[in-house]
């Protein structure tokens, strides 16, 4: 657990933003990992399996907050927001803007960007997490980067 606890928490935090929600989802992720450890068949990497559970938990928390189920396939999912949270350093303007840019992306692009840029997963691992193909992940990552660049340049 020591190896993955921070990686899992930060992955969830980038998706749900609020520290309390991220804590809830991260704890539940590890409980689920322990519960279903015997069901891991090695069809994907262990990291991909863990990130998939973490992503599902993040989606569950987001669904609870938004009063419904949130899915990666929702193209019209309302963009997440940097709501006021005790554990956000608003003085780091550039970092805040970058997170706002990431949160404005559609879920699949957001996930592809976070898992590649921050978590440094391989494209095939990201495809396993997202239940998608490598080609689709590459397209989503490329689109995400382009949109983020445009967003950041427009805010300067």
């Amino acid at each position: 657990m020591a190896k993955y606890r921070e990686a899992v928490y930060w992955h969830i935090r980038r998706l749900v933003v609020s520290h309390a929600d991220a804590q809830d989802a991260a704890q539940e992720t590890f409980v689920r990992i322990f519960r279903s450890f015997s069901q891991f068949r090695g069809e994907c990497s262990f990291a991909a399996w863990i990130y998939r559970i973490a992503t599902n938990e993040a989606m569950r928390v987001l669904g609870r907050c938004r009063g419904g189920r949130v899915s990666l396939d929702d193209s019209d999912t309302e963009a997440g927001d940097m709501m006021a949270d005790e554990y956000v350093d608003y003085t780091d303007l550039e970092a805040v803007k970058l997170q706002q840019a990431v949160l404005s992306l559609p879920p699949k692009q957001q996930l592809a960007f976070n898992l590649r840029y921050y978590s440094e997963l391989e494209y095939d691992e990201i495809a396993d997490v997202a239940g998608s193909t490598v080609a689709s992940v590459k397209v989503n990552y490329h689109l995400a980067k382009e949109k983020i660049k445009k967003y950041m340049d427009s805010m300067v």
Binding site: Y9, R14, Y87, V88, A95
Partner: peptide, 9 residues
Amino acid sequence: IGKRMPYTV
């Protein structure tokens, strides 16, 4: 900016 984030714990 690298991997810098505004989030803290």
